[in-house]
Design a protein around this nucleic acid. Structure first.
Length: 467
RNA sequence: UCCGGCGUAGCUCAGUCGGUAGAGCGGGCGGCUGUUAACCGCUUGGUCGCAGGUUCGAGUCCUGCCGCCGGAGCCA
């Protein structure tokens, strides 16, 4: 009886030499030898490496099938696992049968030919790019990081809360919203005044895709104490950068009976735990990233998990920027928002590691962030990572109803629109805090991939939502 | 949205001063070899993004449009 084995099981030695096994996967390369055999490299996604299959010319379908195999063909190969006599691999599979499950109908135009491709090109063939070394590695690291994040929270008493994707809250203030409607766009119902009559829409009012689960998850925080969201988030901003997606994944923990220091501790602990997990669980993929994508990929993570993050207040950051003697494109003074060039300096040149910047001027932050005693700043924090910029943004939340109302009015919003959010402050309010971690940005940071469009399977950006 | 750059073979690119379209890789054929991003030879392969304009002649110069990429802003 022959068992189907994942390639990783064979390569790591779980299948003893001499054992018959079947592997199922896709051809990466084929090399023929006049010694009377062909070498097939087969990958199945179970690990970075492909397995070398030795296909002897004595196979009945050697001429008809094996010699016609090209990159991308799907195969099922049964053979004997054996030690490899040549350098390059410890074990290989001596084929007894090679079944072609699916041919590549035209090797000349197969989009993933065995050569280097630019990432820009591969985005155009996103349905096939997962077969490449790079995107297979990204997929495995992405999976590993997601599971590590869930595991961290589970081990620390957090509950995963499924906050809604659809929302009718139109004033979250975190970005442009995608409208969701079942109205006939070509024949919109109108009110007497001529406006679109959203009373006839699916929810009886305007609806959108969520830009953050935070406000919702705060409600569960004030019941279960430690909670988090992990799901897709949507922003209809016309952002065209290597760090922005219209649909991205965000992790938003929220902790009760906690202040900004607890929040920063959590952010640092979570990042260290989950990045350490990548190093432990995906050494093969990370070695590839360090070799081919970004030489610092492994050393950067190793440094991150063993050293503490730098921490400074916004005021200290401004002072450091002023002392730098740099000629900033955007002049620095207390009260201005930190620009990309400032954030880059702080983590890449000033601290040489991730930096937590806290206590920003209230004018440049959201209304729900807790007002500090100085009445000028709020208990906000950003975590800045070298090479990628802001990967975390968070705050201690304003738990005092009178102060919250004052802030809502100050920024021009209507307290009546936040009735359930205000109720949390009316009924058993407690200090609490939380943050948003950009999951895709974290993958980019960990792998050294330069563009978040290449760390998510099917990127959505302005003007682009194919596949 | 703003600034900059780029659109030439399946892919990555070169193409000089405006003068009949090139290379590498891939694919095909052959050679060689327990090979390993193999190597050697031959070969295949083009709406030069689209539409106008200038010119005897445009891949090349001009105008408009479309698409993509990078940076900025917004943010995660």
């Amino acid at each position: 009886m022959t068992q189907v084995a994942r390639i990783v099981e064979i390569l790591r030695g779980d299948v003893a030499p001499g054992t018959r096994a079947t592997v199922e996967g896709w051809i990466r390369t084929r090399r023929d030898s006049k010694a009377g055999l062909s070498f097939l490299h087969v990958h199945d996604g179970s690990c970075f490496d492909a397995i070398q299959v030795v296909a002897p010319a004595s196979l009945p379908n050697y001429e008809s099938d094996v010699l016609r195999l090209t990159t991308g063909c799907a195969v099922a190969i049964t053979g004997t696992v054996s030690a490899s006599p040549a350098a390059g691999q410890a074990v290989e599979l001596q084929a007894e049968s090679v079944d072609v499950v699916g041919w590549v109908e035209d090797p000349d135009t197969y989009p993933i030919s065995p050569k280097r491709h630019t990432f820009e090109y591969l985005r155009e063939v996103a349905h096939l790019r997962a077969r490449t070394n790079t995107f297979g590695a990204v997929a495995r690291v992405r999976h590993s990081l997601a599971l590590a994040i869930h595991r961290y929270f589970d081990e620390h008493g957090f509950y995963w809360v499924h906050t809604p994707i659809l929302t009718t809250s139109d004033a979250e203030g975190a970005g442009e919203l995608f409208r969701v409607s079942t109205l006939d766009l070509a024949n919109l119902p109108r009110t007497a005044g001529g406006a679109v009559d959203f009373a006839q829409d699916f929810f009886g009012k305007p609806a959108y895709l969520t830009v953050s689960g935070q406000l919702n998850v705060e409600t569960y925080c004030l019941a279960l104490e430690r909670v988090y969201t992990f799901g897709p988030t949507f922003r209809a901003e016309n952002s065209n950068t290597s760090r922005h997606l219209a649909e991205f994944w965000m992790v938003e923990p929220e902790i009760a009976f906690a202040d900004l220091d607890d929040n920063a501790d959590l952010a640092e602990d979570l990042l260290k735990y989950s990045f350490r997990a990548i190093l432990d669980e995906r050494p093969d993929d990370m070695a590839f990233f360090a070799e081919r994508i970004d030489k610092q990929a492994v050393s950067r993570l190793e440094g991150l998990v063993t050293s503490s993050f730098a921490r400074m207040t916004y005021s200290e950051a401004i002072a450091a920027l002023e002392r730098s003697g740099r000629d900033w494109e955007f002049p620095v003074s207390w009260g201005v928002a930190l620009q990309a060039e400032h954030e880059r300096y702080l983590c890449e040149e000033y601290a040489h590691r991730p930096v937590v910047v806290t206590d920003y001027p209230k004018e440049i932050k959201a209304f729900y962030m807790r007002l500090n005693d100085d009445e000028r700043t709020v208990a906000a924090m950003d975590v800045l990572a070298p090479g990628i910029g802001e990967i975390i943004g968070g705050s201690q939340r304003e738990e005092r109803l009178d102060v919250l109302d004052r802030r809502i009015v100050e920024v021009g919003l209507d307290p009546a629109s936040y009735s359930w959010y205000r109720d949390l402050r009316r009924y058993g309010t407690v200090p609490h805090a939380g943050f948003g971690l950009g999951f895709d940005r974290s993958i980019a940071y960990a792998t050294g991939m330069a563009n978040v469009r290449d760390v998510i399977p099917f990127p959505r950006t302005p003007g682009s939502a194919d596949f």
